[in-house]
């Protein structure tokens, strides 16, 4: 099975701190093998399908080959053997910033919709007109404070999400911005459609990565 590996700088796996052997030239990296059970928390090798990436995206993105024995879970796959085939060079800091900004702008739009629905049109307009993430942060904070003062809890939360998404988008921390995006979509959709909207947002995020990075479904 071909899947994706998300690693920190230096080909280091988050949480386990395991260093993955990088490919040399055209040759794949060395196989890693473990003997644990194929279940989360055991000594298994995690990897991701395209649709899982928005949850885990980190500094480095790699294409990996998994050995025969693979267990699939909701948001990851586990294998006993795996190796890195090639790095997705298009995923760099600049792309991470662009992705984070695109996700944060969607949070801004969701928040503006919620604010307008709650009767705070001036705050919604100010948020929508924010020309940068810094401006979005400031407009989000102002709108959240106005909504709180008016006793409009959902609007305050949504505007707060817009500010948070801008803050984490500027760093960038894409996995945090995608998380905020999923929640912002949910709150904008209302309780009855929250889960559906959240999943749709995650699918949009994966689609962005697919298109911009030229990824294939894995």
């Amino acid at each position: 099975m071909i899947a994706y590996k998300v690693l920190r700088d230096g080909a280091i796996e988050p949480f386990s701190e395991r260093r993955w052997p990088a490919p040399e030239g055209a040759s794949p990296g060395e196989w890693l093998a473990v003997t644990g059970q194929l279940r989360p928390g055991d000594d298994a090798l995690p990897a991701f399908r395209l649709r899982d990436l928005p949850y885990w995206i980190n500094h480095e993105l790699w294409v990996a080959e998994l050995g025969d024995e693979v267990a699939e879970f909701d948001r990851l796959v586990l294998a006993r053997r795996a190796r890195l085939l090639r790095r997705v060079d298009a995923w760099d800091r600049r792309t991470a910033l662009a992705f984070s900004e695109a996700c944060a702008q969607r949070v801004r739009d969701y928040a503006a919709g919620v604010l307008r629905g709650a009767g705070l049109s001036d705050e919604a307009n100010a948020l929508e007109r924010a020309p940068s993430l810094e401006a979005q942060r400031d407009a989000g904070i102002a709108a959240s404070e106005a909504a709180t003062a008016a006793g409009l809890a959902d609007a305050a939360t949504a505007a707060g999400y817009a500010a948070d998404a801008a803050v984490f988008g500027l760093e960038p921390q894409p996995a945090t911005v995608t998380f905020i995006g999923a929640h912002a979509a949910a709150i904008a959709a209302g309780e009855a459609r929250a889960v559906e909207a959240s999943h749709a947002e995650r699918a949009w995020q994966a689609g962005w990565l697919k298109e911009r990075l030229g990824l294939e479904d894995a």
């Binding site: 988050p14 928390g41 980190n58 879970f73 909701d74 948001r75 921390q173 945090t176 998380f179």
Partner: peptide
Amino acid sequence: EYLEGSLPAEARIEFDEHLAMCDGCA
């Protein structure tokens, strides 16, 4: 429970997922 490896599979994934997006908890 996480450090002892006794979290159920789904909870373990949610735990790791939170770590992936929360530097403070990491």
